[in-house]
Simulated assay, not measured.
Amino acid sequence: MSVSVLVVDDSAMARKMLIRALPPDWDITVTQASNGAEALAHYRQGVVDVMFLDLTMPEMDGYQVLETLRREDLNCLVIVVSADIQEAAQARVRAMGAIAFIKKPVDAERIKAVLKEYGLLV
C-alpha cells in the first residue's frame, strides 16, 4: 500500500534534497507544498499520511501548521525538518505533535531510522 507523503518547504532545493533522501524502495506518492497554507490545503483533502515540515516559511510557518493540525485533530505523522536545531524548538514541535525532528541538511540514514521506528518502513 502506497504511503502519501507531503514535503513542505519554501525552498524548492530543500524539497528536492529531502525527496532524494527518502528510501528508494519506500512505496510512496510524494506531493510538495511551498508554504504552510498549501500544506494545510493538501492535508484537508485527506491525502497525507506523513508530512515532512519545515519551520521557517512565509505565509504560514511550521509552528502555525502544527497548531492548526492539533486543533483539527492531527491524523498524519509529522516529521519536522529544520535548520533551527535549538533544544527549545525541538521540544516545542514535539509538544505540538511532531513525531521527530530532523536537522538540515537532511541525512538519508536519519530519515530511514525515523521511518523504521514508526513502522513506516520495514
Rank of each mutant, 00 (worst) to 15 (best):
S2P: 09
S2I: 05
S2L: 06
V3H: 06
V5I: 12
D10T: 01
D10R: 04
S11H: 07
R15Y: 02
R15P: 01
K16E: 13
K16G: 06
K16H: 11
I19W: 06
R20Y: 08
R20S: 13
A21D: 02
P24W: 03
D25V: 10
D25H: 15
D25I: 08
D27N: 15
T29V: 13
V30G: 12
Q32R: 11
Q32G: 00
S34C: 12
S34A: 13
N35Y: 05
N35P: 08
G36I: 11
A37K: 15
A39H: 08
L40A: 07
H42W: 00
Y43L: 11
Y43F: 15
R44M: 00
Q45M: 14
V47K: 11
V47Y: 03
D49V: 08
V50M: 08
M51D: 11
F52E: 10
L53P: 02
L55Y: 05
T56Q: 09
M57S: 07
M57V: 01
P58G: 09
E59Y: 00
D61S: 02
D61A: 04
G62C: 11
Q64M: 04
R70Y: 01
R70N: 09
R71A: 15
E72Y: 00
E72T: 07
D73K: 12
D73G: 07
N75L: 03
L77C: 04
I79M: 08
S82H: 01
S82N: 03
S82E: 02
A83T: 15
I85Y: 12
I85Q: 14
I85K: 14
I85W: 10
Q86Y: 09
E87F: 00
R92P: 02
A95Y: 08
A95P: 00
M96R: 09
A98G: 09
F101E: 06
F101A: 04
F101P: 02
I102F: 06
I102A: 04
I102D: 05
P105S: 09
V106C: 11
V106M: 10
A108I: 13
A108D: 15
R110Y: 00
A113G: 12
V114H: 08
V114E: 11
V114C: 05
K116Y: 01
E117N: 09
E117W: 05
E117C: 08
Y118P: 04
L120V: 02
L121K: 04
V122F: 13
